[in-house]
């Protein structure tokens, strides 16, 4: 206490120590508890979405399987790999920050940012694909293609939806108002034949005992809605993470961190790993579950 009564100029302040703390240990403990509490609220935030997913998947498993099958497991798998590698580079960043190695820190942060950007790039490719195929669940956000007047007869030869084979929709993509489109309901037929349908599905896909393509489409649309909200919020967290990384890169370059003070690096790392873990759950739920119905 007595030191504080002398002139402030001579009081030793550890780098980065905020005024409200007595010492560095107290500050580090505070920041760490704060970060974990923040991640706890993030879990609850995504938890609401996972609950919605759970409810609708158990109600309409076939619609979810159909939607899931349309997602490209290759891109999803690649992104999983990319994120796991980025977690490694992030963990190494923290390691080298603890060692006080500035150059390795800078290199690894740039690598982490690179992998993060690759992830977002792949996500953009996937979203564009949805846009081109008319499966963005919001009317007006899909590619608009006016009906070709010359081949108007093409619309006449409409088959029942359960005979539309995989990939056939693409050739005749017509979407004058940019609506969500879904023509293939072969899975419903399959499930009906094998008595798979849940009680919600028996009401939800049928009109007067016949498979109703529109009603099935609405359920697939719920899948894609959840897909976009979940991956979209995840991507938003990735973008925030990249912002954090940019700041980290700058401060690491300025030799802000040392073996004594590397809390911001460690905390950013925690956040980055958390965002990765969310994806580890999203990938199987969205891309993989339900594939066995078809393959």
């Amino acid at each position: 206490m007595s030191t504080h009564e002398t002139s402030d100029k001579f009081v030793y302040h550890e780098p980065g120590l905020q005024h409200q703390f007595e010492d560095m240990g107290q500050q580090e403990e505070s920041v760490s508890i704060g970060m974990w509490a923040f991640l706890a609220q993030e879990i609850m935030f995504f938890g609401g979405l996972f609950t919605a997913y759970l409810v609708f998947r158990s109600k309409y498993p076939m619609a979810f399987a159909a939607g899931s099958n349309h997602l490209n497991a290759f891109w999803g798998g690649l992104n999983t790999l990319v994120l796991i590698v980025s977690s490694l580079t992030m963990a190494l960043t923290v390691y080298y920050a603890q060692k006080g190695n500035r150059n390795m820190q800078v290199i690894l942060i740039m690598l982490t940012m690179f992998f993060g950007s690759v992830f977002l790039g792949v996500k953009a490719i996937e979203y564009t694909d949805k846009y081109n195929h008319g499966i963005v669940p919001v009317t007006g956000l899909n590619k608009v293609v006016k009906a070709d007047t010359k081949s108007e007869h093409a619309e006449v030869k409409e088959k029942p939806c359960y005979e539309v084979s995989h990939g056939e929709e693409e050739e005749e993509y017509v979407n004058p108002r940019g609506e969500f489109q879904w023509k293939d309901c072969s899975l419903v037929k399959l499930a009906q034949d094998h008595n798979y349908l849940t009680s919600a599905e028996k009401i939800g896909y049928f009109s007067n005992g016949e498979i109703d393509a529109d009603k099935f489409r609405d359920k697939v649309r719920i899948f894609f809605f959840l897909y976009f909200v979940m991956t979209g919020l995840h991507a938003l967290h990735m973008i925030v993470g990249l912002g954090l990384m940019t700041w980290l890169l700058w401060t690491a370059w300025k030799k802000y961190y040392s073996a004594d003070y590397y809390m911001p690096v460690e905390m950013s790392g925690l956040y980055w790993h958390f965002v990765d873990i969310v994806w580890i759950f999203l990938f199987p739920l969205l891309y993989l579950l339900g594939r066995h119905f078809m393959h």
Binding site: A37, A40, Q41, E42, F45, A52, Y60, P137, I222
Partner: peptide, 30 residues
């Protein structure tokens, strides 16, 4: 800390549903 994020995501879903009419809460479309 543990409860508020749930209302946050709920009102967010509500707002998106209101502009996009996807039907996550609307019984007439599932």
């Amino acid at each position: 800390v543990l409860g508020t994020p749930v209302i946050a995501i709920t009102t967010l879903l509500l707002a998106i549903e209101r502009i996009s009419h996807v039907g996550i809460f609307d019984p007439s479309i599932g």
